[in-house]
């Protein structure tokens, strides 16, 4: 299927929001793929980090929404410190997560987690996990 590109799509609210929330110039990315090459979570991702950057540039919000990738990002900042263009991809990932979370949608439902798991996990895991994956 072809994707129709237009100025409308390239300058959509989605693209603007991601740029604003992340504070990043999305057009710095020249698709070298170094982020994907080194991403420790990359093995589990259906769309690679550099592809996320490209999809954002193209305004293809639905493709990102249908992917698990942004939820697998662990904010480890490996991509951030190695990016030749100084793009803080961890912030772009956060912005993409917030688009969902701010609609009051949780990615992880704390109430559905097994109580023994919750009891076993240290605070550091619970607080960071809920900060990243719940609204």
């Amino acid at each position: 299927m072809r994707v129709e590109l237009s100025s409308k799509r390239l300058r959509s609210d989605f693209v603007k929001k991601i740029a604003e929330l992340s504070g990043q110039n999305l057009y710095l990315c020249y698709q070298c793929g170094k982020c994907s090459a080194g991403c420790p979570m990359g093995f589990a991702m259906d769309i690679l980090p550099n592809q996320i950057m490209r999809l954002v540039q193209l305004g293809l919000e639905e493709d990102i929404a249908n992917s698990k990738t942004v939820w697998l990002c662990a904010s480890c900042l490996t991509c951030t410190v190695r990016c030749p263009r100084g793009v803080d991809l961890s912030r772009v990932m956060e912005a993409l997560r917030l688009l969902t979370l701010r609609k009051n949608k949780n990615y992880v439902e704390p109430s559905k987690m097994p109580p023994e798991t919750v009891a076993d996990l240290p605070q550091i895991a619970l607080v960071s996990g809920f900060r990243k994956l719940t609204s």
Binding site: C39, N50, T78
Partner: peptide, 8 residues
């Protein structure tokens, strides 16, 4: 030829 950068 591989189009991409090496991370490590």
């Amino acid at each position: 030829y591989l189009r991409g950068k090496v991370s490590r």
